[in-house]
């Protein structure tokens, strides 16, 4: 019996739903690095303004984590990971990578509860503390995460698996609090699931066309490392009508690209970023955009306070992240330029 229209509609849209999430990554060029190593996959972190339930907050974190750029797997040479692979190879390899990894990122494996576990009273890695001054300042009562609304837990879901003594409220802007939250494990898969994904990949590899095998292995292992257990930071925003977070980014990636997200607002978007020490301001340069309220090129500069920048931009949520970013030190010298390509 042939499939009905509404069943076919459901099937096709569900497939596109999955496809779309996998496509949602950007490539950024970091000047000053060699060509092969210059492409950093930076997730559209935080893409979304968030809804108020703690469970949903956890979901956003998953979104961010699933897409973020993580460090190279231990033992892999510089320039390894997913670098040096052409777009064409990437496209061809992607279905095989997904087939190997997706079952491991199933509901049970991607459950934050199984990944995160309890809070940690320990300290994050030195490399992380070294690049984020806000984590080095003494803890204050205002740094305590607000309790989850209506929940029996005393801390919200997003703080599960956090180094609670190192959670810092970095800023409060327009009634919204921005917390920097170092995580014991910012991955979305626990070690068991990561190992399961690796085993599945090893099993599938011989069935993959020989010409693609190397690329698939490289991409899949990179992705397993991204999704598997690793220490990282999330930036959480809570306030009236908003409660969300993004990131899951390790120290090395914060140093290179920071973490940026945007929330849709009534007048455009609010861009929020976490930046390493030394960055005093961020200028975002937007090119002309057809169909936008602000079709002409313009730029906006925001100060960085306690490693966090917050700025309102007259662009819609996603487009607000489509800009060239110039990081500047307090004396005005350019530290880094990040441009989309």
């Amino acid at each position: 019996m042939s499939e009905s229209y509404f069943d076919a509609l459901e099937r096709q849209l569900a497939g596109l739903c999955r496809e779309r999430a996998h496509r949602r990554t950007w490539r950024f060029r970091v000047p000053g690095m060699g060509r092969s190593a210059s492409s950093v996959r930076l997730h559209r972190s935080g893409i979304v303004a968030m809804v108020a339930s703690a469970a949903v907050v956890a979901g956003v974190v998953v979104l961010a984590l699933a897409l973020h750029s993580a460090p190279r797997p231990p033992g892999r040479p510089a320039g390894g990971g997913a670098a040096g692979i052409s777009q064409r190879q990437r496209r061809a390899a992607q279905p095989y990578v997904r087939a190997a990894i997706d079952p491991a990122v199933s509901a049970s494996c991607a459950s934050l509860a199984s990944v995160r576990g309890r809070v940690s009273y320990g300290a994050p890695s030195r490399s992380l503390v070294a690049i984020l001054g806000v984590l080095r300042r003494p803890r204050e009562p205002s740094d305590l995460p607000p309790p989850a609304p209506g929940a029996h837990r005393s801390i919200p879901v997003w703080a599960q698996g956090a180094y609670v003594r190192y959670v810092r409220r970095a800023r409060v802007v327009a009634g919204i609090s921005y917390y920097v939250v170092p995580m014991v494990n910012a991955g979305v898969m626990n070690g068991t699931c990561a190992a399961q994904a690796q085993r599945r990949l090893d099993r599938e590899l011989p069935t993959i066309p020989a010409g693609l095998r190397g690329v698939v292995r490289q991409l899949a292992e990179h992705q397993i490392a991204n999704l598997g257990p690793h220490q990282g930071v999330i930036l959480v925003e809570t306030g009236p009508n908003i409660s969300g977070g993004f990131g899951g980014t390790p120290a090395s990636a914060i140093k290179q690209t920071g973490i940026f997200g945007s929330d849709q607002t009534r007048d455009g978007a609010r861009v929020v970023g976490l930046l390493p020490d030394g960055v005093a301001s961020v200028q975002i340069i937007y090119t002309a955009a057809r169909g936008s309220d602000t079709p002409k090129p313009f730029s906006i500069t925001a100060p960085v306070v306690n490693n966090v920048m917050v700025v309102s931009v007259p662009r819609t949520g996603e487009a607000a992240l489509h800009g060239k970013m110039v990081w500047r030190a307090a004396n005005g010298t350019v530290i880094r330029t990040i441009s989309q390509h």
């Binding site: 849209l13 739903c17 999955r18 979304v48 809804v51 339930s53 979901g59 998953v62 979104l63």
Partner: peptide, 17 residues
């Protein structure tokens, strides 16, 4: 609904369904 829609954003096809 909110949880499902969030999961849709992260590419959860079962949530969309």
């Amino acid at each position: 609904d909110a949880e499902l829609l969030l999961a849709v954003v992260v590419g959860d096809d079962a949530a969309f369904t």
